[in-house]
Design a protein around this nucleic acid. Structure first.
Length: 374
DNA sequence: AAAAGCGACAACCGCAACCTT
DNA sequence: TAAGGTTGCGGTTGTCGCTTT
């Protein structure tokens, strides 16, 4: 079923047709190219009997009519690959597309803007830099305290339990909506890291963290495997039955099952993969020296200060925009201010979990976390 | 049931890179 | 080497259909 979207039919000043293509036009274009190849796109329209500009024909062919185009939803694997490639290549959609057979740059770009960007934002990750969003750094810096508060005040509360939201009411006594929002973000991060499904869906939390997201986590937060293990241990302390099972491995070890021969081009400003999957049954076996060589990664596209509205265009409209309402996913919580306990988390003297202490004391001087926390 | 809002995506636009003469 | 033409790329827009109010 083909749904006609896009612009309404019109003509430019030269009388050339613009807007959505009709099935008849498609047929003419396909027939011509199958018989003659496209040759010069500029000359093609008149030769094929089309009242279109060559550019429009080329776009229609490459993005829609090409026989090798794979249509339909993106698979989970493709999604992960796009995120990974984007973290190294930035908005080089055509380069990214070369690693996804049958997908066009336009399709990938659209999918990024409408789905993946939001997903990363929900994780508190800047989709431009693939690092923690600067406006969330304070949240990340306070993670140890937040988790300690959670452990102290929520007792056996399960971070992944649907009732977690309701339990947060206990924290409202501090009249600090920000603190609650931070908890929500933390919850979102952990959920996203532990599930392939929508992070706000608290009803289906799998027990194992998808290895890909473990990689993303370690990459985004610049965690080494030991840090990741500490985080898991910490989560186990709070939510023993449902803490995600982290499977850390170096970022350079990500090999898509569907694209085992993925080999990024260094000249394109990316990393070169060995082509060998170094995963080790989910265990941490990588030595420090084997971990991510961040210095080898070319500078990423710098974060635009207005990246949240970057795609808004001139009129402020954005496909898949209004990310701000989704970031914390905590609006419902903030409205629940009726039932308050007497504790005050902000004044609670928080005792750092040993794991966090170790985490912070780690000698990894270049640790992004350490910089934040200190 | 109607209106408004929002998400999705095909297609356009402008610019830059590349090619040809 | 410069100029003009062509192609490719990334950002943005416009419209449809679905969802929410």
């Amino acid at each position: 079923m083909q749904i006609m979207m896009g612009r309404s039919s019109s003509s430019d000043e030269n009388g050339l047709k613009k807007g959505p293509w009709t099935p008849e036009e498609d047929q003419k274009l396909v027939d011509y190219i199958e018989r003659n190849g496209h040759g010069s796109w500029r000359a093609l329209p008149s030769l094929a009997g089309l009242n279109r500009c060559g550019k429009s024909c080329r776009l229609r062919w490459t993005n829609y009519l090409r026989p090798d185009i794979k249509r339909g939803n993106f698979t989970e694997d493709e999604e992960k690959l796009i995120i990974h490639l984007h973290s190294h290549l930035g908005n080089k959609w055509s380069s990214i597309a070369t690693h996804l057979p049958g997908r066009t740059d336009n399709e990938i770009k659209n999918y990024w803007n409408t789905h993946l960007k939001k997903k990363l934002l929900q994780m508190g990750i800047d989709p431009v830099t693939h690092q923690p969003r600067t406006d969330h750094l304070d949240i990340l810096a306070n993670l140890p305290q937040l988790l300690a508060i959670a452990a102290n005040n929520l007792g056996a509360t399960n971070l992944f339990n649907p009732s977690f939201d309701m339990n947060l009411n206990a924290l409202m006594s501090q009249s600090d909506a920000t603190q609650i929002a931070k908890f929500q973000l933390l919850q979102n991060i952990l959920q996203v890291l532990s599930t392939n499904s929508t992070p706000t869906n608290t009803s289906s939390i799998p027990q194992n963290l998808d290895p890909f997201y473990a990689v993303q986590l370690s990459e985004y937060l610049r965690l080494n495997p030991q840090h990741l293990q500490n985080l898991q241990d910490l989560a186990m302390n709070i939510a023993p039955s449902s803490a995600p099972n982290l499977h850390p491995f170096g970022t350079h070890d990500f090999i898509s099952p569907s694209y085992p021969n993925l080999h990024l081009d260094h000249e394109q400003g990316s990393k070169v993969f060995s082509g060998q999957d170094c995963r080790t049954n989910g265990n941490i076996t990588l030595g420090k020296e084997e971990y991510v060589d961040f210095e080898s990664i070319p500078p990423l596209v710098p974060a635009s200060p207005d990246h949240l509205s970057h795609s808004n265009g001139g009129n402020g409209q954005s496909p898949g925009g209004d990310v701000n309402t989704d970031q914390l996913g905590s609006v419902n919580i903030l409205k629940q201010s009726d039932h308050l306990s007497s504790s005050n988390p902000t004044s609670t003297s928080t005792t750092l979990d040993p794991n966090w202490q170790e985490f912070m004391d780690d000698e990894a001087s270049g640790c992004y976390w350490k910089e934040i926390i200190e």
